[in-house]
């Protein structure tokens, strides 16, 4: 690796391509969004370039605060549930025979090919009264009559976890596949049951992976706007749903942009806080 600082333009060549990509796909769109968030909304038409704070002012109300809080809560719940389900799953997956692992990973990848719309409709059918799983429970004698399990918080959470779980497992997989199994065996020789060893060795050793996974799923879930609509009641509509409404149905781009900027900032702040706490603990 070179140690001398780059001197000529040529020395910067290796970072030109990633630099351009970053500018084209992140800096320009995000800067545009920030700029639009300060534009003046012309009701009944579009917007004019300006510098006004109205869009942010409209957002800073108890109503949108509540929606934001729910969106963050939902994203955190999705991340936590995905981890609670995905971590043990991946832990067992990496111990399977290679052929079985490939089969599992392929089927997980195939779930990724499903669009949010398909996932939403599939779950709305699965949780419905007329064609859903409760009919199966009735047939098995577990329930008296079929019931609708949607719309509601549980349905939204289920759909979003289903959507995010393959990502969770694919992110956890490489790290758990590299896990030193002798750590677990060492814990067992010292009197820890497999479950105890899992919690006080495997989990803490994988802490960085866990934090990274939580952040990824959290950010992923924060952007979800179709599943809350399809599977939830209005109370479960996230900020992303309202942003979409403003952008698509109200053509209120400045307000949509302001909400989006706010959402990104809050998400970044939470991610920063999480990594900061993670580092503190690692040092402690």
């Amino acid at each position: 690796m070179r140690r001398t600082p780059p001197k000529s333009a040529r020395d910067y060549a290796p970072i030109v391509y990633p630099g351009i990509m970053l500018v084209v796909f992140f800096v320009i769109p995000f800067a545009t969004m920030i700029a639009v968030s300060f534009f003046k909304r012309n009701q009944g038409a579009f917007y004019t370039p300006d510098f006004v704070l109205d869009n942010y002012a409209r957002f800073l109300t108890a109503f949108f605060g509540g929606v934001l809080a729910f969106s963050l809560f939902l994203a955190i719940m999705v991340a936590v549930v995905c981890l609670v389900v995905g971590f043990p799953f991946t832990f067992f997956l990496v111990r399977l025979k290679r052929r079985a692992q490939i089969l599992w990973l392929l089927s997980l990848l195939s779930v990724l090919s499903l669009s949010e719309v398909i996932i939403g409709f599939a779950w709305s059918t699965l949780l419905s009264r007329t064609a859903g799983i409760t009919n199966l429970f009735v047939a098995l004698g577990l329930m008296d009559r079929p019931e609708a399990l949607l719309p509601g918080f549980g349905a939204v959470l289920t759909g979003m976890v289903y959507q995010a779980l393959p990502y969770t497992i694919l992110v956890l997989y490489p790290s758990l596949a590299r896990l030193d199994w002798s750590l677990l065996e060492a814990a067992r020789t010292m009197g820890a049951s497999p479950v105890k060893a899992f919690f006080n060795v495997v989990v803490p050793v994988s802490r960085n992976t866990i934090v990274a996974t939580l952040i990824m799923v959290f950010v992923f879930a924060l952007g979800s706007y179709l599943l809350p609509q399809i599977l939830g009641r209005p109370r479960q509509w996230t900020l992303s749903v309202l942003i979409t409404d403003q952008a698509i149905y109200q053509s209120n781009m400045p307000f949509a942009a302001a909400m989006a900027v706010f959402l990104v900032l809050i998400a970044l702040a939470l991610v920063g806080l999480t990594t900061l706490i993670g580092r503190r603990e690692a040092e402690a």
Binding site: R41, Q43, F63, D245, Q246, N252
Partner: peptide, 12 residues
């Protein structure tokens, strides 16, 4: 058209 944002806010 005239009360677009107000109506939207009340409705939401």
């Amino acid at each position: 058209q005239k009360r677009s944002d107000w109506l939207d806010q009340k409705w939401t």
